[in-house]
Design a binder for these strands. Structure first.
Lengths: 334, 334
DNA sequence: CTGAAAGCGCTTACAG
DNA sequence: CTGAAAGCGCTTACAG
């Protein structure tokens, strides 16, 4: 492996000067710049980022905490993060934290990340988050005081969907929620659903909102199971909201098996607008936003705060969401 | 940030001894081990992996080259890699290499990976792969001489599917291939399809095999478009193979729009067995293997070869594949 | 069994 | 403008 030393020798200058050339310091004599560049090219020299990190005490490394790799929603956001980060010389690493042993949290702390984005739904160990703070890592989605918080503004699109349903003559509308009741009530989707349901005088039977306790299931599985339970109690339901598009996929499957057509018999509404949703059968109506751009925004905030901690005080970022209408929604059959 | 020095002082020993304790050297006096452990705990000391890497010249870092993050097939394999790697103290980083600038390849080389897995379909720049070899990185899926090659053995399941179709009275069977003709002819799926089609005397019209040239499209889009083109030329087709499950999803969408039912009118067969396939409408028949386990196998090969380059000479790994039958396949109508 | 020292490949004041 | 030197946080022979 050739090092800065080899380059220095070949160019007939000191390692310090090679460093200065590589970091584009303006004061280096042009003649030396030339020599160094030539040596670098001739030797195929590629600097060691690790060594650089160590000397600069900056790793240019963003971590992402994830429950599972196969969620396409997160995948799109992460791709946005990765691309922006890469353009700014940052590396992005995903840490899958499901059946996580203590060892994995420790490994993350050992890597001395500059930033960490939390896409977990369950809570992380206190000792772990405390260590992250101690390391002054720029955090996203940990707690309101010590990190950037991303909040999706579901209220406007939820209102619009509820209005559309009311206009379409729906009165019996269900919600298949992949999490527990507490999260539903604190989520803007849950809140808005309850408010508008009341406002429009929809059926307010509590059993039209279904929750899930088994956190080991995938969203599709949950959507399928909850939908099955729903149809048992309310075979006459005409519209169903789902926590996300994958749960909607499960619900669609269940409806189809039950001999119900979407949207003629039951309208289905997803959330997140994953790319695949356009190819569901039927294509799913959903709540959408630009996930790639959002990922890039997150990366930008982190990178700017890493460079200058004062640049962005921690605050809540509200992401505007909008309705995306596709064929899965239609007037209720009276 | 507290360092090994702080621990040494607190424990009243030298940094070397702290190192020896941390690396479980058996020769350290038990009394010192005790003191050091205590100091570590009291100070909440967490070693710096970067510094360790530098001194040991081993980064414990596996890279993965990917075209896009949103492919669930790769996501499952990668999760297998990540989990095995993490258990063995290796970090896994995904590099998205689509519209890739030269800069990104350089960044990868700077990070001094120990291993790199190639999940790209298009070729990588020669200069890049040459540098990877120079760095003695353990490679997977680059070229037969300089890397492990993973080959999925599609032949048996393809034969079985063709037999099933023949038994079901199918004679007009199509293939929607997401790549170009050359790859089709060199892929075991393509080869077996052609062989068996001949053997069973299926319709051998060349236009029953459709290719794609636009590499910017997603698999779903390709499946949809190719299926549309297929139906124009062959409205009487009774079975369709697709390169992967996502392309099959696109094909299903297209069939549905055309008023054709799957499997009553047309049988559809995917490939890869992504988790979502079970929730397609109808659930997709596909070619399957354990992707998590496969990912773990890849990680194991890499990690063992990093530890001991002689342990695994580069060779081809053949992955056995099998049929997974779901509702998307049925006998041809009359 | 342990400590002092050299080394990993960089960066960055600082003296000249 | 440049080189020598100290330093980043570790590991690892080696002398004792």
């Amino acid at each position: 492996m050739i090092t800065r030393n080899d380059v220095a020798k070949r160019a007939g200058v000191s390692v310090g000067t090679v460093s200065n050339v590589m970091n584009n310091k303006s004061f280096v004599k042009p003649e030396h710049v030339e020599k160094v560049r030539k040596a670098i090219e001739e030797l195929n020299y590629i600097p060691d980022f690790n060594a650089k990190s160590m000397a600069r005490r900056r790793n240019n490394h963003i971590g992402i905490a994830l429950y599972e790799m196969t969620n396409p929603y997160h995948a799109e956001i992460i791709q946005g993060i990765e691309e922006y980060a890469a353009q700014h010389n940052f590396m992005t690493t995903i840490f899958v934290l499901n059946n996580t042993s203590h060892q994995k949290y420790h490994a993350i702390c050992e890597r001395r990340l500059d930033g960490l984005v939390n896409f977990m739904t369950n809570d992380l160990p206190r000792a772990f988050t405390a260590e992250l703070k101690r390391q002054q890592i720029v955090l996203v989605n940990f707690s309101p005081e010590d990190s950037f918080m991303i909040v999706n503004d579901y209220t406007p699109p939820m209102r619009e969907f509820m209005r559309l349903l009311q206009e379409g003559g729906h009165r019996k509308v269900a919600y298949l929620w992949t999490g527990d009741e507490m999260r539903f009530r604190s989520d803007k989707r849950g809140k808005t659903f309850l408010e508008e349901r009341e406002k429009y005088g929809f059926d307010s039977d509590e059993s039209l909102i279904l929750f899930n306790e088994d956190m080991t299931l995938t969203s599709e599985q949950i959507g399928y199971r909850l939908c099955k339970r729903l149809l048992q109690r309310h075979p006459d339901v005409t519209a169903v909201f789902c926590t996300n598009d994958l749960a909607a996929l499960g619900a669609l499957r269940c409806l189809s098996e039950a001999g119900l057509r979407c949207p003629e018999d039951v309208s289905v509404i997803g959330c997140d607008d994953i790319a695949l949703g356009e190819y569901f059968n039927p294509p799913i109506s959903t709540i959408s936003f630009d996930k790639r751009a959002h990922g890039a925004d997150i990366a930008q905030m982190i990178i700017e705060k890493v460079a200058d901690p004062e640049s962005h005080p921690y605050h809540t970022v509200v992401v505007p969401m909008h309705v995306k209408l596709r064929q899965s929604i239609a007037p209720a059959k009276n």
